[in-house]
Design a protein around this nucleic acid. Structure first.
Lengths: 294, 294
DNA sequence: AGGTTTGTAGGATTTAGTAGGATTTCGTAA
DNA sequence: TTACGAAATCCTACTAAATCCTACAAACCT
């Protein structure tokens, strides 16, 4: 389970985190000190469960939940607060929270409730999977496991052996931005615009410098992918990865050139052309395709 | 659902009853004003869910639950009380109650929680049925066992044939540290920082020396992994281990170089590049992926 | 003792960011 | 169709920091 904590009291956040880690209940993938600051990261990381305080400056718990739901967030909420007014507890339940825990925090209580919520989540998920595979059994269409955009991208990058390259995270974020924000899937914005919005999203101080850095990271990452795919091809050009990625993502001449060089054991001799645009565009289209089919 | 209510306050009993009837949540099959008087009827009518007050004369809520469980009653308990002392809430959860609801009673809250409990009950039941019907034709059941981070790492390291290397323990500890402490899963700290925190964690006397030692242990361990995977590959490059680990964890060119050498039976001739960073980063991301599904 | 593994130390190489420039692309006009 | 120019895209080169490597010493087996 992946948790996100929203609470203006840092001591509470610490305690909750400790309870989750100690109880091996899952991962805390982020935290924020008020509703306003939590919106963007929650929408981009999509935690399974959000632990949220009721009383917070700027945006209170209920408003935050409303906002997240209106943006399509489907995770579960557990509210943790010291409210005594029972009307508000009722309100919170009406908004669809899973449970309301009263402060002060009690370790056993929180652990039990989180375990229960997680169990419920898994139970529902299992039943859903069964239901879907039964449905696809009748329509003869293979059932796909649901994934978010980040996961789809990561799978592909991992196939290309560049999961750990610095630029991989840039690629992931770029595709996320494109999938979530690009209204017309048939158009593709210029790379400069993409670099610029990514730089802004990363809160870079000097946007221009960051754009340059992004470009170089991407170039080097994609170059690594080319070399990797070419090496795969020189061992076994019938492999799934080679057949899929080599012709789609890269300039085929470049791959061929590299394969010949690899075969003759002379490395990094000639220069290779890196087509960043083609790579990102293909990646985007493929991700979009499999995302839509979910 | 069949409910039984135990509460010394008749007004509370009335309200709960009304909530259950109004919300069409099920049937109230009996009630009692204290623990003592409830034991016999509960054991004879076996309700699915018992709503029980904490503070009651004669026999309090927790004692009643203990007594019923010791007599073999397997229904679920929901405690409803106006207790403020959080220790007692913890105690109640330890005794195995499903939920603790704070008085005064709020209609929406009680309804939501009863619905949830009922849903959980039905979900478990459905899954149990499915599992049993599946068991009739699957002999060996895979038993999706809950794993902790250490176990996931160990599985992968043993796939790569380096379980007994000295550096394996370092690897395990590094991944544990990263999974539990890294707040932003998208970023990856520099290796130097990782070495440093690991050295500190191991209470080394001379941190700098220990960092150097860690680095060498890791290098040698990963080199062993490369050689192991290359050997597998030179025998059968379609094997599961080779296909998975070779392209993701290592520089594929290096694997290729080694495979050719192994094939020609000339050993340890050329030097192999060891990419520690890539290895750890991929290991971390993969562990994270499988851990969050817990 | 003889061989193997582990630790130590310093140096070599690679990588990521930065900046400027070269090349390619694409619409438009000749 | 060809030529042109601006914009977009791609490439090279440099530096500091991170990462990787070699080689020898020490410790640990048998």
């Amino acid at each position: 389970m992946r948790y996100y904590i929203v609470d203006d009291d840092s001591a509470s956040r610490m305690m909750l985190k400790k309870i989750i880690v100690d109880g091996e209940l899952g991962l805390v993938i982020g935290e924020a000190e008020n509703g306003e600051k939590s919106i963007a990261p929650i929408l981009s990381t999509l935690p399974d469960i959000v632990l949220i305080d009721f009383l917070m400056p700027d945006l209170d718990g209920i408003e935050t939940i409303e906002k997240l739901k209106s943006q399509g967030f489907e995770g579960q909420f557990i509210m943790i607060s010291q409210i005594v007014n029972k009307e508000m507890v009722g309100e919170a339940y009406k908004k669809g929270i899973e449970f309301f825990i009263h402060k002060p925090i009690n370790k056993v209580e929180v652990q039990t409730i989180l375990q229960k919520t997680a169990e419920q989540y898994r139970l529902r998920d299992s039943l859903l999977t069964i239901k879907e595979s039964l449905a696809s059994f009748t329509t003869a269409k293979p059932a796909l496991k649901k994934q978010n955009v980040g996961e789809i991208v990561r799978t592909k990058l991992s196939d290309m052996g560049i999961m750990s390259e610095v630029g991989s995270n840039d690629l992931k974020e770029i595709i996320e931005m494109l999938v979530y924000k690009n209204n017309e899937p048939n158009t593709f914005p210029p790379l400069i615009d993409i670099y610029e919005s990514l730089a802004k999203r990363q809160n870079a101080e000097d946007i221009k410098k960051e754009m340059k850095a992004i470009e170089q990271r991407l170039r080097r990452t994609i170059l690594a992918a080319i070399q990797h795919i070419a090496t795969i091809g020189s061992i076994d050009y019938t492999s799934r990865e080679f057949e899929h990625y080599a012709p789609r993502y890269f300039e085929y001449q470049e791959i061929r050139k590299l394969m010949i060089e690899v075969g003759e054991n002379r490395l990094n001799s000639s220069k290779i052309k890196v087509n960043i645009k083609k790579f990102i565009q293909v990646l985007y289209l493929e991700v979009l395709e499999s995302y839509k089919n979910i």
